[in-house]
């Protein structure tokens, strides 16, 4: 009897978690989608965002989000992969046991702290050494690249470790060096996990808000260089939702819906890729 009650209770709790996800999804789309139909897809994906004049084109923010995300990947992938490879293949058990939790700890640092470090150190550095306002695509890319490291490192590490040891021995027995084994055998064998890690990291980079607001500069224009400031989709929502009303508010929800679709798609791709491996 007690078991039955516990089971039902757990079932209810489990479903309420899924239920809230469904509710959020429904709410975002219900608030945002009508506006897209009202102004038309063409206008929604145009350059002009000027809520006071009823213009809700999100193209410059899409480009902003895209540049920052690609930048984050350019910073995060080489460092993340190198780190995962070192931990999985070249370091001793002791080093692995110490370093991996520390890297995972990076994920626990609040994003506002990353933003703060960006403002205090990175932005002035870029301003004095490379020119421009400092608040830029470059600064955001570097900070976001560091923020997605834990995701890329831990998923890539796990999939490298999961490659059977017999492969390594087989490769060495054929006269391969350690480096050849890593490049020609282990990375291809762990490819799906590594790609999944990168895609999840990409999802994090697109969705990150606080740190980007603090260091991207938030100028509403299409950037011409990585030293220009940009505004991302997430920043726009966070910056404007406080005072937005009517269509403006609906347009911000439409941005949210658009982001939601991108991130869900990325996650589904990541799950598919990892699922195929098993």
């Amino acid at each position: 009897m007690k078991d039955k009650i516990a089971e039902k209770l757990l079932l209810f709790i489990a479903f309420s978690a899924i239920g809230s996800l469904l509710l959020i999804t429904f709410f975002i789309f219900q608030q945002g989608i009508p506006l897209i139909f009202k102004i038309g897809l063409g206008n929604f994906f145009s350059m002009h965002w000027s809520p006071t004049r009823g213009q809700f084109g999100i193209l410059s923010m899409i480009i902003g989000s895209l540049m920052v995300t690609v930048g984050a990947l350019i910073v995060g992938i080489p460092f993340g992969l190198a780190c995962a490879i070192y931990l999985a293949e070249f370091s001793s058990k002791m080093v692995q046991k110490t370093l991996k939790p520390i890297i995972e700890l990076l994920a626990g640092i609040p994003s506002v702290v990353y933003g703060f470090i960006g403002i205090v150190i990175l932005v002035p550095f870029i301003r004095t050494h490379f020119g421009g306002p400092g608040f830029s695509v470059l600064a955001s890319s570097i900070i976001l690249g560091i923020m997605i490291l834990p995701t890329i490192v831990s998923i890539s590490y796990d999939s490298l470790i999961a490659v059977p040891n017999t492969y390594r021995e087989g490769s060495y027995a054929l006269g391969a060096t350690k480096w050849q084994t890593v490049v020609k055998l282990l990375i291809p064998a762990a490819r799906s996990g590594i790609v999944a890690g990168i895609i999840l990291g990409m999802g994090r980079a697109i969705g990150e808000t606080m740190a980007v607001i603090m260091i991207a500069g938030n100028a509403l224009k299409i950037p011409h260089s990585i030293l220009d400031s940009v505004r991302t989709l997430t920043s726009t929502i966070a910056l404007e939702l406080g005072y937005a009303t009517g269509d403006h508010r609906a347009a911000l929800f439409a941005c949210g819906a658009f982001l939601f679709i991108i991130i869900i798609t990325l996650n589904i791709i990541a799950i598919r890729i990892t699922g195929r491996r098993e």
């Binding site: 492969y167 027995a173 391969a176």
Partner: peptide
């Protein structure tokens, strides 16, 4: 040394990929 002295394992260690890739793996190293 490992090229001159080959080793065959108890459980066949077939590397991921095609038959040809398995054959060429060591040669291309």
């Amino acid at each position: 040394l490992r090229r001159r002295v080959g080793l065959i394992f108890a459980t066949p260690v077939v590397l991921p990929g095609t038959i040809f890739k398995n054959m060429s793996y060591g040669l291309k190293l």
